[in-house]
């Protein structure tokens, strides 16, 4: 935890608004939205940079932030009963983690750790809620995306 704080470069602010839009447009979560909606989302997305090894969140933490990977890799793992780490996935550029925390404040189901020096765009739940309230099209875009992912999961389970 302490190492994590040591490695934090908070709110780097190196990305210009257009770059944020370019990144968000490449993320599947937002790709179905209109460019103007993505522009709105870019206004609430802050850039954060973390060094290798930084823990973004621990399993069991309350989640209220969505992380979009601009560069670097993030490892997702879970602790097994014998306290060993079980690697679940490695997320790369333009992928995201913690999307469900945009809608509820449930606990994180796994731990996320930076593998390299990582740059993220981070969206807070409160900001997203406010935006979705003002621009229902954005909320609708999210619903569509979540439904299509749910369908995908159902199909995968069937096959």
């Amino acid at each position: 935890m302490f190492a994590g704080i040591m490695n934090l470069h908070y709110d780097a602010g190196e990305m210009i608004p257009l770059e944020k839009i370019i990144v968000l447009n490449k993320v599947s979560l937002f790709s179905t939205l209109k460019t103007e909606d993505i522009h709105m989302i870019s206004t609430i997305a802050s850039e954060e940079i973390y060094e290798d090894g930084h823990i973004l969140f621990y399993e069991g933490d309350i989640g209220d932030r969505l992380f979009i990977i601009v560069s670097g890799e993030v490892m997702i793992f879970r602790k097994s009963k014998d306290s060993t780490e079980k690697h679940l996935a490695t997320l790369k550029e333009n992928e995201f983690l913690g999307e469900l925390s945009l809608f509820d404040a449930e606990t994180r189901t796994a731990t996320a750790r930076c593998r390299d020096r990582c740059t993220f765009l981070v969206i807070e739940r409160n900001d997203m809620e406010q935006l979705a309230h003002e621009y229902p099209a954005i909320a609708f875009g999210f619903i569509k995306m979540l439904i299509s992912r749910m369908r995908g999961m159902v199909l995968n389970n069937k096959t």
């Binding site: 770059e19 370019i22 447009n25």
Partner: peptide, 13 residues
């Protein structure tokens, strides 16, 4: 360019 996809989307809109 990094902006290619965004340009395509804008043109489509």
């Amino acid at each position: 360019s990094e902006a290619d996809d965004l340009i395509a989307k804008i043109l489509q809109e």
